[in-house]
């Protein structure tokens, strides 16, 4: 087994006086989609924000492809090849779609072949290329947020609830885009509440509860085991 793309070992994160992460152990294997699941408020977003460096880990170790990034500043982590799609999408509303994308291509001018690929995944971005990003619909903003991460090849993508609040048709578009990203060889850590999407996309899964990872294994295994889902995530029949 080769070195995973991302590894968290016993990561602790405090926010103000609260102990939010209490020893998170997690791996994202190379070239795989790893789901990060769990009930609301268990620390999924906090885990992603700790990896990108928005929160500082107070204990434990985070390695990207073997390199220790625990104490690295956020811009350095990003430049080491981590693309981040935050839960709130982090769109620059006053900038145009184009300007958002230009900024996201940190290493220079946008590669036109890659841009065509992004447009094929998210056609509305081409249509509204010159519009202010703040005027996009919710789904289009989510597309832009993912497109910004996709516009350059990264080693690892951290994506927080890309289908939150979206209509089924757009959920399918997102899922298709993420599958293409994976086919491009990316390693992805994906937080997803839509269990059907999680089942369709995930290779491996980690389930969090109360600031820890309480179960990890193959997504297929979790997807098959209704009792396990019920116990870990409190999923009711309809949610499946």
């Amino acid at each position: 087994m080769s070195e995973p793309m991302l590894r968290l070992e016993g990561v602790f994160t405090n926010i103000a006086q609260y102990h939010i992460l209490r020893g998170v152990d997690l791996e994202v294997p190379r070239g795989r989609v790893s789901m990060l699941l769990g009930r609301n408020g268990v620390g999924k977003t906090t885990t992603l924000r700790t990896v990108i460096g928005h929160w500082r880990a107070h204990g434990g170790r985070i390695t990207l492809d073997g390199q220790d990034i625990t104490a690295m500043p956020t811009p350095a982590i990003a430049r080491a090849g981590v693309g981040f799609v935050p839960e709130d999408m982090g769109i620059f509303a006053d900038l145009t779609v184009e300007e958002n994308m230009v900024l996201a291509a940190v290493s220079g001018p946008i590669d036109s072949a890659r841009l065509d690929w992004v447009f094929s995944a998210f056609p509305p971005l081409k249509t509204f290329w010159k519009s202010a990003a703040g005027n996009l619909s919710g789904g289009q903003k989510q597309m832009l947020s993912i497109a910004r991460a996709m516009i350059e090849k990264r080693r690892l993508y951290l994506i927080d609830e890309p289908t939150k609040g979206l209509a089924p048709a757009i959920v399918a578009t997102m899922a298709r885009a993420l599958r293409e990203l994976k086919a491009d060889g990316a390693s992805i850590l994906l937080v997803e509440q839509n269990f059907a999407v999680a089942k369709a996309l995930g290779d491996t899964a980690s389930v969090m509860d109360d600031g820890r990872v309480v179960w990890s294994g193959a997504m297929a295994e979790l997807g098959r085991d209704a009792d396990l889902q019920e116990r870990l995530m409190g999923l009711s029949m309809e949610a499946r």
Binding site: P75, A78, F92, D94, L95, V106
Partner: peptide, 19 residues
């Protein structure tokens, strides 16, 4: 662009890789 984006969401500007 970095300045304008930073005024709106500095955290995201850093997550893109800008100091």
């Amino acid at each position: 662009l970095i300045v304008r984006a930073g005024v709106q969401n500095g955290e995201m500007v850093q997550a893109l890789g800008y100091r």
